[in-house]
């Protein structure tokens, strides 16, 4: 599926592009292993019963098919998985994981693929915005002035007893985010988008 045809007419080349799955070229067995390691679940044991998609709140309103991702995980179809925008439509409700008769955790297969995609810089910006909020304030959803006023009205302090009130805890948080390269990733990808 990877080889493009060298036809003069690019539109034709695209329309007639190779749609045959050839394990030797299209499969990366280390992908299955990596997904299983990060996700902590034996994705290769999936027998494609469809219980996952049948349980999925995203399936009825999109082209996202968790079963298809499980199949691709099995076949080592790394590039297809990591570049598919549907990867980010899982709400991580884990209903599929509760019902999977093979006792797998399809949701964590998705999480593993997202981790791998993110490492390659393929990650929606809203995810990285959360990283920056936390880096700056300790909170994914930070406090604001209107809320401070409201808190006082309720008899609470304007700042909750978190990093909001104790910013001295922020350096440790920033160090952790940097140690894992998460902050760097956010900066790099977000700046590329500018």
């Amino acid at each position: 599926m990877t080889s493009a045809k060298a036809y003069k007419d690019a539109a034709l080349a695209a329309r007639l592009s190779d749609r045959v799955y050839r394990p030797a070229e299209d499969s990366d067995p280390s992908f299955t292993a990596e997904v299983e390691k990060i996700g902590g679940t034996a994705a290769h044991l999936c027998f494609q019963c469809g219980t996952c998609t049948g349980s999925c709140p995203s399936a009825p309103r999109s082209s996202y098919r968790i079963r298809t991702f499980m199949r691709r995980a099995n076949l080592g179809m790394k590039d297809v998985c990591l570049n598919d925008p549907d990867l980010w439509l899982c709400t991580t409700c884990y209903t599929c994981s509760d019902r999977c008769p093979r006792d797998l955790i399809p949701t964590d297969v998705i999480m593993a693929m997202r981790n791998m995609a993110a490492k390659q810089g393929i990650v929606p910006k809203n995810f990285l915005a959360t990283v920056n909020f936390i880096y700056n304030t300790g909170h994914g959803v930070p406090n604001n002035d209107a809320n401070r006023v409201a808190r006082v009205k309720l008899g609470l302090e304007p700042e909750p007893e978190t990093t909001c009130k104790y910013p001295e805890f922020l350096p440790a948080i920033r160090k952790i985010l940097e140690a894992y390269g998460t902050k760097q990733l956010a900066d790099k990808v977000l700046s590329e988008g500018q």
């Binding site: 019963c49 219980t51 998609t53 049948g54």
Partner: peptide
Amino acid sequence: RGRVAQIQELPNKNLIVVAEDTLLGNQ
């Protein structure tokens, strides 16, 4: 061709069988 994911009951006691038709690729 799909294992039943869930059965829901309607007020008239009819049932909704939810599954994926894996050959169709749709819920």
